[in-house]
Design a protein around this nucleic acid. Structure first.
Lengths: 410, 396
DNA sequence: TGTAAATTTCCTACGTTTCATCTGAAAATAAGG
DNA sequence: TTATTTTCAGATGAAACGTAGGAAATTTACACA
């Protein structure tokens, strides 16, 4: 769900235009921003995903009415509508509860594994907590107790658990076993799992795999489908005549090239619309600008959401080439800030994580006899990262780390 | 909407070809294991020690892929357990359960104790295993399938420890059944482990064509609808697989894929051409998979070979290396030394993607002559699809 | 006391490069008839 | 012609490399009794 911040950017438009924008006068493009901010509240169907929704609905019905447990694994790249579908189903079930008493006792839990930390502990405790509506300890208890708790809460009740981004869980030690226990638990619980990594199943033990229900692959949208989706958003969210076919095709084509990410496409449309606000219709330039903005904000957000030491590490990396010296620089920063520096081992892992986030790129090179193996780091947008970093590092504490401080290189 | 690929459902949905496709999948274990009666008997006669509550010898099972090693072992053990019910056994596939920690954890779990998956060391886990074992007062059979994978990754000290368990435990005993398809595996082992593990050895011979045919026939009845596969088709599949080390899994794959192709083509009978297509498809898939998972520089070398072969019919190491360097440089990438490149060529040869032959051309030196061993179309496809960098390079 | 997760401590084996030594028959040369 | 010596181009071996990354140990942050 694009829960994008409403950051209006009027560029260098004159004051009068802003006034008009405020008043919503002429030149306005967006009819209903809610369409973009909370699309589920507006749409009653999801194009190109009807089949899976229907099939899931049937599975849910069997579960609720005939006690047939089910589990699904939704696989697909980001922006292929997995989460969207799941939330849609979730909402629909909530609605049906009002009409069909069979559903009234069915509990639903949605949770994103990555957001809660990705550890078995975190996932289980959050599930238990949401199920019981009471506080559940986050540490110190045996994992089995969580399972027991979940089982006891569900005695005589049914629950559907939605696990978003399970891949983060599965890749952890014992993550797949946790799923296994959940799936095999002696309780009326059905699970729908979502993974951005299409190969999650390779990380699971055979017994987990065998207790896992069918997998559904969400193929990336192609340009035509994306266009249709965009058209729908435009129809509901934008004022007639402020957009045309060409613009939609343009956005669709760009997004289709990049793994068919619908979320990005819709976001681009929204941004473009915002940029065109006051002008009266969306032009290609707006889209181009939106793309730049989108990428920039993504990077900015990524950096901003980093833990403190990651930021410090990143700051050190930007000024260096290889991880070894980066760690020296980092340690120096820490000293200045009177922080205890993390060990090299951990630092190295952090760098790898930053690589996974797509913020930096690691290159491992082997100089053989003339220097063994070495881990290098490449940073694409040094300046942008630096800027983002400085802004919010400065916020976090009165910083002063000087450039090019004497770090031996030999 | 065809974007819903549901593997499991496909077997349920009614098909004109398959009655039940699962019977052809490699993880299906049949009720009967035809033509392995000897092996079953041998294995059982070793394990029958269990009847007296004694520890059977450790057993080492060797046999090429698809000779029924795993199936026979599971079959014998589960039957024996049903009849005797005085021992425990774990089946562990060391390719999937590929760390000492998880192997120990699996063993402990079978013995009915829970283990945390974090916090402990393997040494601690070993201690716990010993404790649980002591408590259980039973004979425990540990089956380690694809045991070579384990040793290659973690060395043989886990095996050593396992073979030594009987000295640490008194009220229980364990026996190890090691399964592998790697002939050379046993030589690379610590002599102590080798002698202990190989108390008994069992060799599974490949199936011959008639045996394969029989196996296929039995499965085909279960898997296919009537009249879909003829006798001659089964003969054909069996013959192809028999030529190929008598690998039953391959034979079944062949039959299954042929069936799938027939289904795709909306025909209602599997013909020779479908079998042929299946053979090609299986081979293509294999090659594709191998290439797609190759390390970057190996791919580069392979790409160089493909490129070079458009001009010449065969290439030498030097020529390949020059091409490789050019390509790498033009892509802004580092490149490895010729020494390494030479090794990479050997690796590619071993995988059967290319064929490299060392030749002495006298005055013109000693080199390797390289030709492609598979269709260049798939190779290129695999290369381009598995790494965007190549796509840019090839088109631009 | 317990547990799971995060981090630190310890260590080696990894995928190379570099340096060094071999290889083996063609071609070039020399010797023999 | 035959016997020899080059000579090419890479094969094949082995050492050196230094940290990346795996595994054990320790610490953190709690819970429970």
């Amino acid at each position: 769900m694009p829960q994008s911040e409403t950051q209006f950017n009027y560029g260098n438009l004159g004051n009068s235009v802003i006034r008009e924008a405020l008043k919503g006068g002429k030149g306005e493009v967006i009819k209903n921003p809610k369409v973009f901010i909370d699309p589920l509240s507006v749409f009653t169907d999801i194009p190109f995903r009807e089949d899976i929704i229907r099939e899931t609905a049937i599975a849910v019905r069997y579960f609720v009415k005939n006690d047939v447990k089910f589990s699904n694994l939704f696989l697909g790249l980001t922006g292929t509508g997995k989460t969207f579908v799941v939330k849609y189903i979730y909402n629909e079930i909530e609605e049906v509860k009002k009409e069909d008493p069979d559903y009234s006792g069915v509990k639903q839990v949605y949770l994103n594994s990555r957001e809660v930390g990705g550890t078995p502990q975190a996932v289980l405790s959050v599930i238990a907590e949401k199920l019981t509506n009471s506080l559940v300890p986050r540490h110190g208890v045996n994992l089995g107790e969580y399972i027991d708790k979940i089982k006891s809460v569900l005695r005589g009740k049914k629950a559907i658990i939605y696990l978003d981004e399970v891949d983060t869980l599965v890749k952890r030690r014992g993550g797949d076993i946790v799923l296994y226990q959940l799936l095999r638990a002696d309780a009326d619980v059905s699970v729908i799992m979502i993974s951005n990594d299409i190969n999650v199943r390779d990380y699971m033990e055979p017994r987990v795999l065998s207790s896992l229900g069918p997998s559904v692959i969400f193929k990336p949208y192609d340009a035509v489908q994306l266009k249709e989706i965009l058209a729908k958003y435009a129809e509901y969210g934008l004022i007639d005549g402020t957009f045309n076919d060409e613009i939609l095709s343009y956005i669709a084509a760009i997004s289709a090239r990049e793994h068919g990410d619908a979320r990005k496409a819709v976001n681009l449309l929204f941004r473009s619309a915002q940029l065109a606000s006051g002008i009266g219709f969306i032009k290609k330039e707006h889209v181009d600008k939106a793309i730049v903005e989108y990428e920039q904000e993504r990077l900015f957000e990524a950096v901003k959401s980093l833990p403190f030491h990651y930021k410090l590490a990143l700051r050190a990396i930007v000024t260096t080439e290889d991880v070894v010296t980066a760690h020296k620089v980092y340690s120096k920063y820490c000293d200045k800030l009177k922080q205890k520096p993390l060990s090299y081992r951990r630092f190295s892992d952090i760098v790898s994580e930053l690589d996974m986030f797509g913020i930096v790129k690691i290159k491992i090179m082997n100089r053989g006899r003339a220097g063994g193996i070495r881990k290098y780091v490449e940073v694409h947008d040094k300046e942008k990262i630096m800027k983002a970093l400085d802004e919010n590092l400065a916020e976090e504490m009165g910083y002063e780390y000087d450039e090019g401080s004497d770090v031996e290189t030999s | 909407m065809s974007d819903i690929i549901d593997e499991v459902l496909s077997s349920v949905k009614n098909s004109a070809i398959f009655k039940n496709r699962e019977y052809l999948l490699p993880d299906y274990i049949p009720e009967e294991l035809p033509h392995r009666e000897n092996e079953i008997k041998k294995l059982a006669s070793i394990l029958v020690q269990l009847y007296r509550g004694e520890r059977p010898s450790n057993i080492f099972i060797y046999g090429l892929t698809g000779t029924g090693k795993t199936a026979v072992t599971k079959y014998v053990l589960s039957n024996l357990q049903r009849k005797l019910n005085n021992f425990e056994y774990v089946y562990i596939n060391a390719r999937q359960t590929d760390t000492p920690y998880r192997i120990l954890a699996d063993i402990i779990e079978i013995l009915g104790d829970k283990v945390p998956f974090t916090g402990l060391s393997t040494a601690e886990l070993y201690r716990r295993m010993v404790k649980v074992l002591e408590r259980s007062e039973r004979v425990m059979i540990i089956v380690l399938d694809e045991i070579d994978a384990l040793v290659k990754k973690h060395g043989d000290d886990i095996l050593y420890k396992l073979t030594r368990v009987n000295y640490d435990v008194h009220k229980s005993k364990i026996s190890i059944v090691g399964i592998t398809n790697d002939v050379k595996f046993i030589d690379g082992l610590d002599p102590r482990v080798r002698s202990s593990l190989g108390e008994e050895e069992l060799v599974f011979p490949p199936y011959n064509a008639e045996q394969l045919e029989d196996i296929l026939k039995k499965r085909a009845v279960l898997a296919f609808r009537e009249g879909v596969v003829s006798e001659s088709i089964i003969k054909l599949c069996a013959a192809i697989a028999a030529r190929d080390h008598g690998d039953a899994r391959r034979a079944l794959d062949l039959l299954r894929v042929a069936g799938e192709i027939t289904e795709r083509e909306r025909k209602n009978q599997v013909g020779e051409e479908e079998v042929e297509k299946a053979r090609v498809e299986i081979e293509r898939d294999r090659v594709y998979e191998v290439i797609a998972t190759l390390p970057f520089h190996s791919k580069l070398v392979l790409l160089s070979i493909i490129k070079g072969l458009t001009k010449n019919t065969r290439l030498t190491t030097g020529e390949i290396y020059d091409l490789y360097r050019n390509i790498a440089t033009s892509m802004g990438s580092e490149f490895v030394t010729q020494r390494r490149a030479s090794d990479i060529i050997n690796e590619l040869d071993m995988m059967g993607i290319i064929s490299a032959r060392v030749v002495n051309r006298g005055r013109y030196g000693k080199t390797k002559e390289v030709v492609l061993a598979v269709d260049s179309g798939i190779v290129l496809k695999a290369l381009l699809e598995s790494d965007e960098r190549f796509a840019d390079f090839w088109s631009g």
